[in-house]
């Protein structure tokens, strides 16, 4: 167990350093976020609260796909074999998911900041917004840590990861979206959303648990 944690930690730092050097993923994603926000601001002006939240989730879903796919795409051939010898599959999965999770949180922060400038700020209860984003990002990260690995095993991996992941994320995003939508209403309380929080937490646990159990089978060659 200790070994897994040490390995995940070193892998996470390795991913971070590599990203710091090339800035391939983040610069691409931030460019995408900026373009979407500017275009939607041009089209919608300051949109309705519901539309505001919709734009945010579209940004987050596509960022998650991009980050997930790119994080595995960079590891081809020799480098991949090297990681396989170096680390346990479980450590790779945990490090990948955590890495995607951190990048997604960063992307959410930046897009919320930009959206508050370009689209206005319809949020009345930021607590629900941030908890919804946190749980949603965690679920997306655990899901893409697994699905992008599946996609990377095949030919044309980028398209395939996107196609196989879209139907699977809908349930997750619907639940997280319900929580973030509550942040737009003054009258939402924690009691009203108890079921959604429990369900989303349970879904995250299930996705993470299955990822941990099954990653071994898709990673080894």
């Amino acid at each position: 167990m200790d070994r897994i944690i040490t390995q995940s930690w070193s892998l996470l730092r390795l991913y971070w350093d590599l990203e710091g050097k090339s800035r391939q993923t983040l610069s691409g994603v931030f460019l995408y976020v900026l373009v979407i926000i500017l275009v939607t601001a041009y089209i919608f002006g300051s949109p309705d609260p519901g539309v505001w939240m919709g734009i945010f989730w579209v940004i987050l879903i596509f960022s998650a796909v991009n980050i997930g796919v790119l994080s595995y795409l960079q590891e081809t051939g020799g480098r991949r074999l090297y990681y396989m010898q170096l680390a346990e599959p479980l450590a790779v999965y945990l490090a990948k998911s955590l890495y995607i999770f951190l990048l997604l949180l960063l992307v959410s922060l930046v897009s919320i900041l930009l959206m508050s400038i370009f689209h206005g700020w319809p949020v009345l209860q930021p607590g629900f917004l941030w908890s919804g984003i946190g749980l949603g990002c965690l679920g997306l990260a655990l899901l893409f840590g697994f699905l992008a690995a599946i996609g990377s095993q095949s030919r044309n991996s980028a398209t395939l990861s996107t196609i196989i992941s879209f139907p699977l994320i809908i349930g997750l995003v619907m639940l997280a979206g319900k929580i973030t939508n509550a942040s737009l209403l003054a009258g939402s309380t924690l009691d009203l959303l108890e079921v959604e929080f429990l369900m989303l937490g349970g879904l995250n646990l299930m996705i993470g648990g299955l990822g941990i159990l099954l990653f071994n089978y898709i990673w080894r060659d």
């Binding site: 697994f146 699905l147 599946i150 095993q153 095949s154 030919r155 044309n156 395939l160 196609i163 196989i164 879209f166 139907p167 699977l168 299955l210 990822g211 099954l214 089978y217 898709i218 060659d221």
Partner: peptide
């Protein structure tokens, strides 16, 4: 999506392993 995934592999052994894992998920 399962069938798309199934068709995108050439190596049958790898294909069976990955699609089974996807099916559980």
């Amino acid at each position: 999506a399962y069938f798309l995934l199934y068709r995108s592999f050439e190596d049958p052994d790898k294909r069976d392993r990955v699609t089974s894992a996807y099916n559980i998920f």
